[in-house]
Design a binder for these strands. Sequence first.
DNA 1: TGGGGCTTTTCAGTTACGTCA
DNA 2: CCTGACGTAACTGAAAAGCCC
Length: 306
Amino acid sequence: MGEKDNDVLGLSLSLGCAPPQPPNEKFNLMPLPSSHFMQQNHHHVLHKTPWNDHFQSSDRNSETRSFIRGIDVNRAPSSVDCDEENGVSSPNSTISSISGKRSEREPEPEPEPIGDDTEAERTSCSRGSDDEDGGAGGDASRKKLRLSKEQSMLLEETFKEHSTLNPKQKLALAKQLNLRPRQVEVWFQNRRARTKLKQTEVDCEYLKRCCENLTDENRRLQKEVQELRALKLSPQLYMHMNPPTTLTMCPSCERVSSSTAAATAAGSNGGLSRHPVGPNHQRPIPISPWASLPIHNRPFDVPTSR
DNA sequence: TGGGGCTTTTCAGTTACGTCA
DNA sequence: CCTGACGTAACTGAAAAGCCC
């Protein structure tokens, strides 16, 4: 289907690779960091979306802006508005419990296969106004009806603006599309699920690439270590080397300074004097180029006195 | 103020239908 | 015509939050 899922939310992973796509907060579907890493708490975060929060105010524009721009798909927003007007649809409250599974429901007369032009009509009416959200009616067969292009388009447009609907908007949209509010609700649910799935795939892809990059980097570093070790094993070459530079980094300001090992050993506070030593300043951390090597491999490993 | 019951909303997972190759 | 794969509408049950008493 014409999914435009690439404009889903952005990644917030920072593993050193550039995210595959720029973040788009429009959907605000998932908290950041993204999706599958935060699933545990999705309820906390998602339940009240910002959009929902400012719904009362969003009434002002969204109702008019997106809904009105509407294509009058079915030209006859007839019986749809009937129900739900008072009782907001609740997926589980009535309909779910009553409608139940297909097998448990009464059969519904098969809708005539009609042309495209009447598709919308089919969609909205085949379920009949009677069964409505509450499914109250008897005709509860789980008849799957495809939405018309126009319906899908408008739903998509609306979804782009906000991935969740408040009751009023749901009703308005349902009315406009000549669908039952429950159908709109389900569509949004499924759409969110699809978006999330897509995002998960993107995340996976991104992580995979990061992993590959890290593997490469690791390989490179290992090679470097090997080379350094080989260097160490050739003494004549080794003797001509300058003494390794001791790098020190101030953890607070993260500045790196260098000094020779000799100077450092002499206790001249080499390189460190420029850094203030206060309550907020931590001791600089020496970064020795040999630090990562095993002790016995360090070239200038002088036996410490005592 | 804290707790229990109820309602509402969302989600993950599943089922089943429609379409297409 | 049959069939399997696929997309997706519809359903289920659980969790969480809000409200009321």
